[in-house]
Design a protein around this nucleic acid. Structure first.
Length: 603
RNA sequence: GGAGCGGUAGUUCAGCCCGGUCAGAACGCCGGCCUGUCAAGCCGGAGGUCGCGGGUUCAAAUCCCGUCCGCUCCGCCA
């Protein structure tokens, strides 16, 4: 039954056959999507990339083709030569794009057979992630996955055209590069030619694009894979794609303007949505205080309310202790929720999973307050609290009192949890804005040193540089922290529906400033020389002022398509433990290979 | 490293609480019938190491312990 392609040549995609083809003879090729056998007449839904068309085979008119059609099974790969005709009246199928025509088979060629599929190409039944990834070639035949990848392709095209029109030059940077400290864990590649030495896969092309600026390519862009060996999430894969760009002789506004234009263009051309530019900007401080996160989802309320001042002199031991230790008291008011004890218990469990000791709450009811803690409050405190939270009967106020960062984390996540769980999020809204005025560095308790919030090449605000210098000079750690925390970065993040989709900064182009920053980050001169020497060297030879940004392409595509996981916009993604079920990577290698690489595995 | 949810037929699931006719459904698959269907229909059939290992018990899909895998989250991710 099987036949070679022979001189068969496809003349059209199945999905593109239309009324204008009626009467024509076409050669179609594709997969048997489904077969309906009526005894005497067989209908075959033939599927290719562009869609599905109905093939008709009648026994009395074409016994030869009928005999072959009879034997066809799902997902056999066939070619059909036939004549397009208008469907008989009353048999049209408006659900199909091609539903007003059908192809009367003249000849059927069977190019290949298929075993029964592990799961159907139809999407009615969901399939477990692992099965989908193991049989990704089947999964990608599905309408949604196929469309996702085509959508992604269009994002590439629009992006490339956009940057080209704006005068940017696309330049590739190496994947086999040098491991650098700071940031994520590197994937390492052993060097065969240099025993004991390793390349690292780039976490981003950051240093190379800066060097390209020094080289005079004043507008660079690239759609590029990046690699970070960290734990995975729904929006994080070990290898992911960035839209990366960098420009010389610019300030923040110039970079942000280009970034906005690209996003606005993608939304307009792909979704038909006009985003209002320039995008709104909020400060890091505002984001943290109101939402407890630097990437707030503002499509719903439930903002964090500051209460520390109200409880400054409280007798309530828990709050008192927290405030005395420099912590804060904040709350969210879940308006008109009438939460039951059971629901509050669930929320308590949730915050406990985040590391909270518990969840203090007040149920505001008609004429009374139900709460395990309100009895410890003074009359005045209760009054001010109700006023500040604008409490009404039906509301439930949920508290967090702890170190500032902890309160942000607890309430920020609780807010999001409630928003999702209780359907507060307006899914039809597109909330896009910038977060600006990030601190340059923050103190890392564990490592007992400052770490860069963005990366070590981010330019501090000019007016804050004296503070940096002073911080460098003082030996008083508390004073040092105080000074450093006041230093703001010339950095900006773009946030879309509560996800960070891009971030960038104006970079340090002066060696003296870079030296100060490295020193404060605890990177000694020798280390800086070893690890970033090539950049520092470049900065000596006429580095222009420059800045840029990188977008997370996978995230952008996923959000635009309304998907929760970037796995659904990546052809061959990894599972949460970094495994590819299709290829079974990572895997053991031959001892010989290890030997060549001068590597010995230690248990 | 930690928390939660899940793992039963090819697929998606029910059964698990309360151990004993609980090895079940739908779809798919195989065979047959059928000339206008399009999630075709009708009749018949095959198909399971209940993730894995151990324990408790007269008896375990069901209870307990451990472990592996998938997903979500915290930590981590400049």
């Amino acid at each position: 039954m099987l036949t070679d392609l022979g001189n068969f040549k496809r003349t059209k995609y199945c999905g593109e056959v239309s009324l204008s083809d009626v009467g024509k003879t076409l050669n179609l090729a594709g997969w048997v999507h489904r077969k309906r056998h009526h005894g005497g007449v067989i209908f075959i839904d033939l599927r290719d990339r562009e869609g599905i068309i109905q093939i008709v085979v009648e026994e009395k008119n074409n016994p030869e083709a009928y005999e072959i059609a009879d034997k066809l099974k799902s997902e056999y790969v066939i070619g059909v030569v036939g004549r397009v005709r208008k469907r008989p009246e009353g048999t049209e199928n408006p659900k199909l794009k091609t539903g007003y025509v059908e192809l009367v088979a003249d000849k059927i060629l069977v190019f290949n057979v298929s075993e029964p599929l592990p799961f159907p190409v139809e999407e009615e039944t969901p399939v477990s992630e692992e099965t989908k990834l193991k049989y990704r070639f089947i999964d990608l035949r599905r309408e949604n996955m196929k469309n996702n990848l085509i959508f992604r392709h269009r994002v590439y095209q629009i992006t490339r055209n956009f940057f080209t029109e704006e005068g940017f030059i696309e330049i590739e940077t190496p994947f086999l590069t040098k491991s650098t400290p700071e940031g994520a864990r590197d994937f390492l590649v052993p060097s065969r030619l240099h025993p004991g030495k390793f390349y690292a896969l780039p976490q981003s092309p950051q240093l190379f694009k800066q060097i390209l600026m020094v080289a005079g390519f004043d507008k660079y862009f690239q759609i590029v894979k990046c690699f970070r060996d960290e734990d995975l999430r729904a929006d994080r894969q070990p290898e992911f794609t960035q839209i990366d760009f960098e420009i010389s002789f610019v300030r923040e506004e110039d970079v942000m303007d280009i970034a906005e234009k690209l996003i606005a263009k993608l939304f307009k051309e792909l979704l038909g949505i006009e985003l209002k530019t320039p995008f709104e900007r909020i400060s890091y401080k505002e984001a943290m205080e109101k939402y407890g996160t630097d990437k707030p989802d503002r499509r719903f309320g439930l903002e964090l309310i500051e209460l520390t001042d109200i409880f400054e002199n409280t007798e309530f031991k828990v709050f008192k202790a927290v405030i005395k230790n420099g912590g804060v008291v904040k709350a969210i008011n879940f308006k008109n929720s009438n939460l039951s004890r059971k629901e509050i218990d669930e929320l308590t469990k949730y915050v406990q999973s985040l590391g909270a000791k518990g969840l203090a709450w007040i149920k505001v009811e008609e004429g009374k307050l139900t709460s395990p803690i309100v009895k410890f409050f003074s009359e005045e405190e209760t009054q001010k609290l109700l006023e500040r939270t604008q409490a009404q009967p039906g509301d439930v106020i949920l508290f967090s009192a702890d170190k500032r960062e902890t309160v942000y984390k607890i309430l920020g996540n609780l807010r999001l949890h409630i928003g999702k769980k209780y359907g507060l999020i307006d899914e039809n809204k597109w909330d896009i804005f910038w977060v600006v005025d990030f601190p340059l560095m923050e103190w890392d308790e564990e490592e007992e040193r400052f770490v860069a919030l963005h990366h070590p090449f981010t330019m501090p605000k000019e007016e804050d540089i004296p503070r940096l210098k002073e911080a460098l000079e003082t030996d008083d750690l508390d004073r040092k922290k105080e000074l450093v925390h006041l230093v703001r970065a010339r950095a900006y993040d773009m946030v879309l529906n509560g996800e960070e989709i891009g971030g960038g900064s104006i970079r340090i182009h002066r060696k003296d400033v870079q030296d100060i920053v490295f020193k404060l980050l605890g990177i000694e001169e020798k280390e800086a020389e070893e690890k970033f020497g090539f950049l520092l060297e470049a900065l000596k030879y006429g580095a222009p002022p420059h800045g840029g940004l990188a977008f997370g392409l996978d995230r952008i595509v996923a959000i635009m398509l309304g998907l929760d996981s970037i796995r659904d916009v990546i052809a061959f993604p990894k599972t949460q433990r970094g495994i590819c079920p299709l290829t079974n990577a990572p895997d053991y290698v031959e001892t010989k290979q290890l030997k060549e690489l001068h590597i010995k595995v230690v248990e």
